[in-house]
Design a protein around this nucleic acid. Structure first.
Lengths: 330, 330
DNA sequence: CATTCTCTTGACAACGTTGTCACAGCGCGG
DNA sequence: CCGCGCTGTGACAACGTTGTCAAGAGAATG
């Protein structure tokens, strides 16, 4: 900037004015400065500008997701980005792979970078560590899981209801031996889905069989193994509720490998791009990611713009998408 | 920081030393400062620190992708992130949806933010606009497409070879009427795949029929329509080469809807997570995204660390993954 | 006891910007 | 011809840090 000023024969402040398109600079000075900018390849430094101007705001938001390469996280990121683009806000994306320590270190590093707000899909049990930053006015919107130990905005779906939709559907198609494959019960959503599964069974007059609830299943490969074990039981299930999309994928693989695709009913939780063309087409409980993403972006930017109302907790309703795999009879 | 210094009864510089864990501060001063930091909830400002210290480097890299929500972009982002994490480098992710103007504006905004390097999957025909920044030492690694008009690192796959692998495979299974569904020919990779398709046909002694090359197909829905048109020809194809993963998905849908799944052969370009459990399991030409991502990260961080050797152009070899849909006979 | 050295600490300027204020030049009305 | 307001421009300090240097307090040395 100093060089531009020298070359154009003006002061620093005048270059600043031209670069920021402030009114009140004569046309010929403007032209001279612009020529110098082009000639020297000068680039305005946003970090310095924000330091001086915006009292440390950075025009960035952080997205702290489970794994940017899974379709749920990626779609969420994309929704947020679409909203952010209009405001010239950049998005810093991180994956935490369900690891609590990583969550804390990522959040710490984003706060150091003075992001203007945070989208957070937490892996920690409690988020008391955020209390200071929240008090200092950092906008944080939780997604998929409710905050524990602090109170701030959240956008979640009713996981218990979703699980009940799935199980009710299977019951309505004549099933009694219904298994569940779920993630670690320490994860809030996994726990809520397990509860929903049990309560739907009881409601149907079926006492939940602990042998049929395969929990702590983490990956698609784990799900294959878990489904094998379920199928090897003396009294195997006639239907499976797979409580996360990658677990449903594992379940499909396992059924294929056992030659049981189309014989054992299957309902997944979370839709994914190709669920309609797998074999058989997968019936799922869908949470509308676009809606979630839009809601999150709306809350986050409202807070950034100064909304100080009480925390909003938006709970969206999942819906059942019938495609075939869930309508197989025992 | 001023407040921390006052509370601890030390100078600004001493707080800075403690915060940066510099040696040579007495234990009791360190303790006093740390107490003050905790008490006031002080957060070190990385932007200001970098401004002063790193001569404007930001410990951020930009990832300019086609669409963070598609699986190729998302996996690439994830590979880069894994590398970046160790170095405490944050990633700013953006989608450009194949729009050239957006590419320029995104790159401009990232340069203003003084990212230390750029991963770029370009949508523009030529990237001369980068010349100034490259000359100023901005590390840029192109992915999936080679730079045009400027010379800098790139990591690509041999698209012509990939297309030939696909078509040769179909020819080997007895096909002569082989259609292609491809993206806009203005896109470098789409063009290379079209060339590969044609050259493989000629090599097999088949003159390419222009009616069978459906180009400028953008989305999965477009692909459904394009496949319908192909199937409605007087002399319809017995096999289809779908030159991008979402086009393969559209092709599968179209074949299902016409009751021709399992009757018409199909080979896709780009693998995707569920290609093995769609019906029939999809034979694809795979570009190994993990390898690409790792290679990109390696180049980018080498440049950031000061490697000034001549631009590297890494060309990876795609491979055919046989699963069923490509082995159907006419 | 004077001198040198080591160890801590702090004052100051600088990183690249911009908000604030002041000032020069000009035209205009009285 | 004087004072006024308006327009365009620049000097300076400040944003939150840290590199540089210097200085004070002891400790070690002769």
């Amino acid at each position: 900037m100093r060089d531009v000023a020298a070359l154009a024969g003006v002061s620093l402040k005048t270059v600043s004015r031209v670069v920021n398109r402030e009114a009140g600079v004569s046309p010929d000075v403007t032209a001279r400065v612009e020529r110098a900018v082009a000639q020297l390849g000068y680039r305005h430094n946003l970090a310095a500008s924000n330091l001086r101007r915006a009292h440390g705001r950075s025009a960035m938001v952080g997205a702290v997701l489970q794994d940017v390469s899974n379709s749920f996280s990626a779609s969420l990121l994309r929704s947020l980005e679409d909203e952010a683009r209009d405001r010239d806000v950049a998005i810093v994306a991180s994956s935490l792979d369900e690891e609590p320590e990583r969550e804390r270190s990522i959040v710490e590093s984003l706060v150091r970078r003075r992001v203007d707000g945070l989208l957070l899909v937490p892996a920690t049990e409690r988020q008391d560590y955020l209390a200071d930053d929240l008090r200092n006015g950092l906008p944080v919107v939780f997604v998929d899981r409710r905050p524990q130990g602090v109170d701030t905005d959240s956008v979640t779906v009713d996981n218990g209801l979703g699980a009940r939709l799935a199980v009710d559907h299977l019951v309505a198609h004549g099933h009694r031996r219904i298994a569940m494959v779920g993630d670690m019960p320490t994860i809030q959503t996994a726990r809520a889905r397990l509860e929903g599964y049990r309560s739907a069974l009881r409601h149907a007059g079926v006492e939940p069989d602990p042998d049929l609830a395969a929990m702590s299943v983490r990956s698609s490969d784990d799900a294959v193994a878990a489904v094998y074990r379920l199928l090897d039981l003396d009294d195997p299930p006639t239907a499976i509720f797979a409580a996360r999309n990658s677990l449903a994928v594992g379940a499909i693989r396992a059924l294929h490998q056992r030659g049981l695709a189309g014989r054992v009913a299957l309902v997944g939780f979370d839709d994914f791009p190709l669920a309609d063309i797998v074999d058989p087409p997968l019936t799922v409980v869908r949470q509308n990611v676009r809606t979630i993403g839009a809601e999150v972006a709306k809350r986050l930017f409202a807070r950034i713009d100064g909304d100080t109302s009480a925390p909003h907790h938006v709970v969206l309703t999942p819906e059942l998408v019938v495609r075939g795999s869930g309508e197989i009879r025992p």
